[in-house]
Design a protein around this nucleic acid. Structure first.
Lengths: 234, 234
DNA sequence: TCCCCTCTTTGCGCAAGCGCAAATAAGTAC
DNA sequence: GTACTTATTTGCGCTTGCGCAAAGAGGGGA
């Protein structure tokens, strides 16, 4: 089952590509489907390919020597991932990519993109744009983790999730789908603490929590907390 | 006082530049000297220039709304900084750059580099290489902050400092120069905790601590701690 | 419908590290 | 040398949030 090359233009790095270039990329790619919980690649693997997610959802994470995990970001359709290995030959992936549901991705040889970049400045430029965004986000999350209290970090993580994959219900609430563990890994805490904070918010009528599901009833209030307003808890 | 353009080749992004290009960059630049404690730019300023540090030392930091700071990295001679604004027009700096001692930098118009990149693929490519390095470092530090205990983070921060600006003494010790506050901002903790940890290490003969100065007596031991070996403390 | 698996909640005790405050040490300027 | 400024140490109490353990809840498959 082949991808329509023109679809690739939805990938931010390919937005300025010519039709011919897009064809070249698909011709030099392989499709790869994996099941929920399986891995596209592991931290430390040789970064021979970079990927474009075509369907499904995945997450990028790192783990420390004791096996504790942190989530770096979630990957949605038409996003590129595993691209850090493109700029250096023989690089290894600095993170692990795991499917959150059944997912399909296009695997493109890193070498090939590197060659294309030699003669197509727009490619380097757009990839760089993407990277500056990542740097900024990581810097902000780093500062947040270093200086903000946990309730605020959780609020912020939920808002990020909401903007990435939240669905609005009829009456203006926002519906999210994640486990407590996911949210913990995204905000640098534990599933217990997330659960406690959510329970407290629920008491205040701020959210409605269910299994792998949260309904944000008062998004505005959540924003206030993430920005350092007085906590409701106490 | 003009800079010899060829000196610019020491900047990693300019390593592949032609002599003529280097000249162009110096011709489109302004030298700027500031005193210890003063600022090259603040977070949120319009990113009209990017900088190359010619002499002195500076730090890149972020602060939260309450004024708490985190150090993102220290900038040494011939390193570029403030370059995140280069790829987007009308960008603002995502961090603040402060001189740690009397420092001189070359300020080059971001627009100019952006234009140069259109026709010189090596520039985008080398800048991208630099950026991938930053992303990786931030990802690692983020994971560390989220999952490691404070003693380990401090050890790691000291080793990073040592590799960046440590000077070896005759008998193999490494001398570092920083305040407890600096080290706290680099490892996401407080100056009190840094002081206590250093005191403890000193008791064990691992380091020798003085005012704005630390002598690492047993670097190897420090590495062990940063890698998760049993703590000596306790 | 019942079972099983996974996710979630929450009580409880505890460890880590924060941060004030006060004392001390080390430079610096005069 | 003296006064002043800034960095550092450390006692002390306390907050935050961790993490075990056990119970509860939800959903899917047979």
């Amino acid at each position: 089952m082949a991808i329509d090359p023109l679809q690739l233009r939805r990938v931010s790095v390919f937005q300025n590509a010519t039709d011919d270039d897009l064809k070249l990329f698909t011709q030099n790619s392989v499709e790869r489907s994996i099941e929920e919980g399986e891995f596209f690649f592991f931290q430390g693997d040789s970064a021979v390919y970079f990927y474009v997610l075509i369907s499904g959802r995945a997450k990028l994470m790192q783990m420390n020597s004791a096996g504790q995990q942190v989530n770096l970001r979630t990957i949605n359709e038409w996003q590129m991932f595993g691209a850090l290995g493109v700029v250096r030959e023989n690089a290894t992936y600095p993170a692990t990519a795991q499917a959150l549901e059944h997912s399909t991705a296009l695997a493109i040889k890193s070498d090939f993109l590197r060659e294309m970049m030699q003669t197509r400045p727009y490619l380097s430029f757009d990839l760089m744009k993407l990277m500056t965004g990542y740097i900024q986000e990581m810097q902000e999350r780093y500062r947040e983790l270093a200086t903000e209290k946990v309730e605020r970090r959780i609020a912020h993580a939920m808002l990020r999730l909401a903007s990435q994959m939240g669905t609005k219900t009829i009456n203006g609430d926002i519906e999210l789908s994640f486990t407590r563990q996911d949210l913990a890994e995204m905000s640098g805490t534990t599933l217990y603490t997330v659960s406690r904070v959510l329970s407290e918010w629920e008491k205040q009528g701020l959210v409605e929590a269910g299994r792998e599901r949260v309904l944000i009833r008062r998004p505005h209030e959540l924003v206030r907390i993430s920005e350092g307003g007085e906590s409701i808890i106490g």
